[in-house]
């Protein structure tokens, strides 16, 4: 009985996860190394990978800063009042419930070229939708809960005794944060950051709608994969997808490692 369950489990993993992964690696190298190198070194592929990198960088930094502050205010901010904090607390999860495509649509409706805000910014030479800022905003929307939700439980667990002691002893708010709060939340922040990187690297629906998927301008790695598939250029799509998958595997290892560090502290 026991053997049967273990074999079944292996079977599910093999069929659902390992087989697709292996097939993708194989097809990326279907034309040998040169085929892979060619698919990846196309100018549009290099540009798409660079765009993905830039979006990941901007989003992780912004989401980190605002995520930490939001978590701090939601847990510690007595000035907000209990009611408002509990309402805000439920709102934090909303992006989880929103389909990425709808998330993208929201940004287009709010600041798209047809709206008052969008045309105002376009007039001063600053495009939001179908340009880099819109892609960052869309990805920020999608990744918002990841950081906040990792930090809040840690803050609740450590309590504010030490922070109060620090403040009573005359430390600045910033000093208290850096010397007292930060050391206990840093692994939570690290884990949240890894999740943010993974999610923003893989974001597809929201970015596809907001970016317009313009080749060599707003195309990211995931939207390039989509376009290659639409053009029936499966092996080229496989090459890009393999790079993304390799990064994901690295992030997965990093996730395991930070998870362990977080439990130690």
């Amino acid at each position: 009985m026991r053997k049967l369950w273990i074999i079944l489990t292996y079977l599910v993993f093999a069929l659902l996860l390992v087989a697709p992964l292996a097939k993708m690696v194989q097809s990326a190298f279907a034309d040998g190394w040169s085929g892979f190198a060619e698919a990846v070194s196309r100018p549009e592929a290099l540009h798409a990978l660079m765009m993905t990198g830039l979006v990941v960088l901007c989003v992780t930094v912004l989401n980190g800063v605002f995520g930490i502050m939001t978590a701090l205010y939601l847990v510690r901010g007595k000035w907000l009042g209990r009611r408002l904090r509990s309402v805000m607390n439920s709102i934090v999860d909303l992006p989880y419930a929103v389909s990425p495509v709808i998330g993208g649509l929201m940004i287009v409706l709010l600041v798209g070229p047809d709206t008052a805000i969008g045309s105002f910014f376009a007039n001063i030479g600053f495009d939001i939708v179908y340009a880099f800022p819109g892609m960052v905003i869309a990805t920020l929307f999608v990744t918002f809960p990841l950081m906040v939700r990792e930090i809040m439980p840690v803050l609740e667990e450590i309590g504010d005794d030490q922070e109060q002691a620090s403040a009573t002893l005359g430390a600045y708010g910033w000093t208290t944060f850096r010397r007292v709060t930060w050391p206990s939340i840093r692994w939570g922040v690290a884990y949240g950051a890894v999740l943010t990187v993974a999610r923003s690297m893989g974001e597809f629906g929201a970015v596809l709608v907001v970016s317009g998927n313009i080749i060599n301008r707003t195309q990211t790695a995931t939207t390039l994969v989509y376009q290659d598939v639409e053009n029936f250029d499966i092996s080229a799509a496989g090459g890009i997808a393999l790079i993304l998958a390799a990064f994901s595997a690295g992030l997965l290892l990093l996730m395991e490692w930070t998870k362990k560090r977080r439990e130690v502290h």
Binding site: A198, F204, T222, V225, Y226, V229, I234, S248, M255
Partner: peptide
């Protein structure tokens, strides 16, 4: 793994 992998890559793997 499915959390870490971009969903478009997941789709492509199934397609392949």
């Amino acid at each position: 793994l499915p959390f870490a992998l971009p969903t478009a890559v997941g789709g492509l793997m199934i397609l392949l």
